[in-house]
Design a protein around this nucleic acid. Structure first.
Lengths: 248, 248
DNA sequence: TAATTGTATGAATCCATGA
DNA sequence: CTCATGGATTCATACAATT
């Protein structure tokens, strides 16, 4: 297994990649969510929007979390259009979203040509409660395919995930649990290639390598690109990775 | 606790009800999905769509499940507009949807004036697996409020439900588990009134009565109106219902 | 070693205050 | 008035510290 990391803007780098070189696009774009007013959403850093005021951690902000909803849909649709071009027939796109941006994500996916085939909730047991009603403790993975689902594969994946956010060793505010990502990357055939245009700290890549898929990542921020590089390099030199047997 | 059942068309009956008489609208409209093409959606009866071909069900069809998506949104928005008028300030609407109609449901809710405040997945552990990818084993409850959430209530509800569809004693194709509905009706203050314009077999009403809320139901089909009537009457004569203590 | 107690925090949300 | 800003708040859960 091998990986490639590009440092730069997602859309710019995508346009340079070759047609039909990718089997699955799995990514977690900035949600541009958080806050009731436009200025709350666009005028604050991710840390200010998403972090408890008494939290002691010192994780870096990430860029691109300040679009309004209209330009968010257009931007995401354009990105997913490029991703569609790169993807082989029957390939998949898996896009993370919170509850607020769900409809926008579904729209963008379909505007880009993907066939929307499902939604998989990811439940986070440690979400904040909400006084006066129902808490919102799920994020969502929107699933699109290029053309139709490949029904010839003997593959049965869950429709729902539950896992806590990484706490120890966390390096990104929105870091995803590797155990969830390991399930998701299986939508890519073994030995195929997974693309993540918003690599962040690289959990998608880590999962891809552990599950025997190649990985191509793109990350704008130097800080996170370096962190992802380090984590991915560490994966290739893990001597226990041959111990990972076939999933039951 | 008391209940009222109207037999008739939802929209027609709603226009006859009084302003500000309702605390929570909790309902499961016909989803109108279940097929990729317009003809697949409109050409089959609900039984043909929602039951597997080999299942030995004997459940009656229900009407109003063959609109295309555009008119579905308009129809649902109109219905939710009437429901909005009936509802008190800070009251809630909880609308069931499958994954396909989620964006449409969110649109209709907001078109009708409700503030969209969340989505709660309901997971059905017995859903069929899907060859070649992720199974779709969740339905969704879309939550809207009139104005803002009432933060003065000391109420903390879950953001996620898991429960199997009733198997024994099931009388409606899309019957909801009472244990899920008992959580949902708590968004209505104790002693308040819950409205369900698509009563079906009456699970919302059963849950409302058990949790100490009044219930108003509307059901078009004579068959299901009779069934709901019977179930609700049975609730009022349960001698164990006084044993239901205050929720912790 | 196992059980118990203690502490920090969450892709938030709400509200008072000031511009 | 509206809009922007910053600080206070909520509890289940994870993990560390302690018994």
């Amino acid at each position: 297994m091998a990986y490639t990391l590009h440092r730069g803007d997602a859309l710019t780098v995508l346009t340079r990649l070759a047609d039909h070189s990718i089997d699955a696009v799995i990514t977690d774009p900035p949600y541009n969510s958080g806050g009731r007013t436009s200025s709350e959403r666009t005028g604050r850093t991710p840390r200010a929007k998403y972090t408890s005021s008494d939290a002691a951690h010192d994780l870096a902000d990430f860029p691109g979390d300040n679009r309004d909803q209209r330009s968010y849909i257009r931007w995401l649709a354009e990105l997913l259009t490029e991703a569609y071009r790169l993807t082989r027939e029957h390939g998949s796109a898996l896009v993370f979203s919170d509850w607020r941006q769900g409809p926008a994500t579904s729209d963008a996916l379909q505007m880009a040509g993907w066939t929307w085939t499902g939604v998989m909730p990811w439940r986070k047991p440690t979400a904040r409660p909400r006084k006066g009603g129902f808490k919102q403790d799920c994020e969502y993975v929107y699933w699109g395919v290029k053309g139709t689902v490949d029904r010839s594969r003997d593959l049965y994946l869950p429709g729902f995930f539950t896992a806590s956010q990484p706490r120890k060793d966390r390096v990104h505010i929105t870091q995803k649990p590797v155990e969830v990502m390991r399930q998701l990357v299986q939508i890519c055939p073994e030995g195929g290639t997974v693309l993540d245009p918003f690599t962040g700290s690289g959990s998608t890549g880590v999962a891809a390598l552990r599950e025997g898929r190649h990985f191509i990542g793109i990350e704008l921020s130097r800080h996170y690109a370096d962190l992802a590089e380090e984590r991915l390099r560490g994966e290739l030199s893990r001597d226990d990775f041959v111990l990972v047997g076939p999933e039951k």
